[in-house]
Amino acid sequence: MKAVTYQGIKKVEVKEVPAPSIIHKDDIIVKVTACSICGSDLHCYHGMIPSMDEGYIVGHEGIGVVEEVGKDVTKVKKGDTIIIPYNIACGKCYYCKNNLESQCINASQYEIGATYGCSRLLGDYDGTSAQYVRVPYANFTPFVVPENSELTDDELLLLTDALPTAFWAVEDAGVKGGDTVIIIGSGPIGLLTQKAAWMKGAERVIAIDYVDSRLEHARKTNKVEAYNLNQSSELAAIVKEMTRGGADVVIDCVGMSGKMTPMEFVGSLLRLQGGAMGSLELATQVVRKGGIIQVVGVYGTRYNAFPLGDLFSRNITLRMGMVPAIHMIPTLYDLVQTKQIKPADVISHHTSLEDAKEAYQMFDTQKDKCLKIIMKP
């Protein structure tokens, strides 16, 4: 089969690889009908994820049709169309039973959650950017798309990761009626988080990014106040004054993929630093005393000069983590099905799996106002 494979820093290639097969009795094999590139995939693309070997199949967002089922599978059958959540989880451990399936203890050998296409560190599972993928724990993880579904492939794909991430961000942060919410980053996750913040009753939603086209999209589609980080070296102070002391909630949707300082770049190359920290530093500067910073942008392991004292002295609550998407998908599916939220405006491009190399380059450089790319095998 054909699959998108990691071939070194900023290099992916579509290669012929062995097709997956049933390994465990509760596995299924899925014929992928559509997959997408996530901002988190760029961490792999940039070589920021440890244990990422050349030839590794990448991607963690996909939908498809069940081709083969293990003998113990009862939830799905051959021919079902399914959403493949980015989480890989057993459904039986303490964390899975308490809506924290992103920290399943059985899906990975490490003290960390598991997902597709993200190296040995996150469970060592082949990615979804391929013609076929093995989906483990099939009695828990997949969401079976109803036969009468009116959702497009684009909408279904956003339910694998992006939309659950956005809604979990505002829920975990406790966004409530009347809040001022600042969202750092206006990529697909940031744009969807803006929508979710309005739905949770926010009175004011402010977007910060350094890409004008994304800020323009945010203003147009989500009716937010939007500011370019490059427009002023005093932007943090301006925003804090404008919000009369800072936002109630600040959500970091960027993570380690922000702009690195020279020291961060060198430290990251030497594995002494887990990437950029600029967006988190900005969050500490624009949140009010006693406010909440929510982090859903992916960060690496260790960070130098972490502003712990700034957080402590101002009674800031810092919340973060890998999003438990599986239990959220049914509710979010209903919201999209009933058109209470229309998420597909974050998708800007469609292409073939064969063109993955060019798609990654476009996504990485934001060429042609690229926001999110859907690929068809």
Results as ranks from 00 to 15, higher is better:
K2P: 00
Y6P: 02
V14A: 11
V14D: 10
E16I: 12
E16G: 00
P20G: 07
I22P: 07
K25A: 14
V30Q: 09
T33N: 10
G39H: 04
C44H: 03
G59H: 08
G62Q: 07
E67P: 00
K71G: 00
K75H: 07
K77V: 11
D80V: 02
Y95M: 03
S102V: 01
N106I: 03
Q109V: 01
G113P: 03
G117Q: 02
G123L: 04
D124T: 05
A130W: 02
N139T: 11
N139G: 13
D154S: 12
L157E: 01
L158V: 02
L163G: 02
F167P: 02
E171C: 00
A173N: 04
G174Y: 05
I183E: 04
I183N: 03
S186F: 09
K195A: 15
I206E: 07
H217T: 14
A218N: 10
N222T: 15
V224Y: 05
N228I: 12
K240G: 10
M242G: 01
R244H: 15
D248T: 05
D252N: 15
V254E: 03
G255D: 06
L269G: 11
R271V: 10
G278W: 03
E281P: 00
L282F: 12
G290F: 11
G297H: 06
F306D: 08
L311P: 06
L311V: 13
F312A: 13
S313P: 00
N315G: 08
A325F: 09
H327I: 01
T331K: 13
L335Y: 11
V336L: 06
T338Y: 15
P343I: 10
A344K: 15
D345E: 13
H349L: 09
S352H: 12
D368H: 08
C370I: 07
I373L: 06
P377M: 04
